[in-house]
Amino acid sequence: MQPIDAVPVRRPGRWIAALAVALLAAAVVRSVATNPRFQWDVVGEMLFSDRILHGLVLTLELTVIAMVAGVALGILVAVARMSPNKLLAGAGAFYVWLFRGTPVLVQLLFWNFIAALYPTIELGPIHADANTLITPFMASLLGLALNQAAYMAEIVRAGILSVPEGQAEAASALGLSRAQTLRRIVLPQAMRVIVPPTGNETISMLKTTSLVSVIASSDLLYSAQLIYSQSFQQIPLLIVVCIWYLAITTLLSLGQSMLERRYGRGVARARRETKPMRLPNLAVAR
């Protein structure tokens, strides 16, 4: 065998770009490390302080509960929208229109002031004062979950539509009920389409929960705001907040890729070993 000993193509453009990026990065790192006003000592001190950790726990609770409720309600809304019953379908469409068409911040404020609309809430035997029932935490949950359900409904609907009709047909031909067909045959296959955007939605939800600081729900951001309103250490506390958000989003991204692999079962087996896409090497075409 004759070895190939060729001179590789020179790519001066790439070298110059890489050099520029490296220089820029070095400058930023130097400035961040040496500017005393970042107050890294305060960052280190506050990162695991009680109040920040409490805020973090509330943020995580809000994210998890709002997402779980949003997904469950979203599936119901999606199924309603796709129902042969016109009234149900219309109700589903109206829900999506209403909750997707208004800013989540406005919806949070609305739930916060719901007592002005309904001072007492009666649900059958339950009878409560709206101000005691709708705490800032409840208002936050309602606002986030109901809004999320509208987005999830659209994602779930796209997922259900992605499953070939023959699958549901084969299931009915075997005698499975509509509910069984949905739960056992259609939804598991729709997951492949539903999971990736739901992962993004979860990451997005984690950050959206910071909006609840406007209704004095003591989440991660609001806790930091409370601290710096007394200590005036705004920048280090906001850095603490960013560090926590980044840490959690990183974990969530890892979880997401694991879920995607699980729900790719049976289909697209070859795609399991996908590599991240790179821009095509234009030089090859020459």
Partner: peptide
């Protein structure tokens, strides 16, 4: 009643 389709329609997952 058993039914067999032209395009099989096996449950892919």
């Amino acid at each position: 009643i058993g039914m067999v389709f032209q395009h099989f329609h096996l449950f892919a997952h």
